[in-house]
């Protein structure tokens, strides 16, 4: 059985920011976006639609690769690096 993605992320060191570094303009997702690319390009599988159909991101587990940002043509994402001491801290890689 392959390891679950959550378990893989659980191996990484994260320092949690107080506020999200990725903010989604759900309106854009629901009106302009045609492919929901973020749902399947994210290597950490952080994007999902909630019960109300709103796009959400579990930004706490973000690997900061920026793939979602680059792949989001409708520019629904306000995306910055986590500030100060926050975010993923690779020990090897």
């Amino acid at each position: 059985m392959p390891m679950k993605i959550d378990a893989k992320l659980g191996l990484d060191v994260f320092k949690l920011d107080k506020e999200p570094h990725i903010v989604i303009d759900t309106e854009v997702c629901n009106t302009v976006c045609t492919d929901d690319a973020c749902l399947y390009v994210c290597p950490a599988d952080l994007y999902e639609r909630d019960d109300q159909g709103r796009m959400t991101v579990n930004w706490e587990g973000c690997l900061e690769c920026g793939t979602c940002l680059i792949c989001c043509d409708p520019r629904a994402l306000s995306w910055k690096y986590p500030g100060g001491p926050y975010g993923v801290q690779y020990r090897m890689s």
């Binding site: 390891m3 893989k8 992320l9 191996l11 990484d12 290597p43 950490a44 690997l63 690769c65 920026g66 793939t67 680059i70 993923v88 690779y90 020990r91 090897m92 890689s93």
Partner: peptide, 8 residues
Amino acid sequence: VAEYSAHA
């Protein structure tokens, strides 16, 4: 597995 990482 000791670490999982990604980059553009």
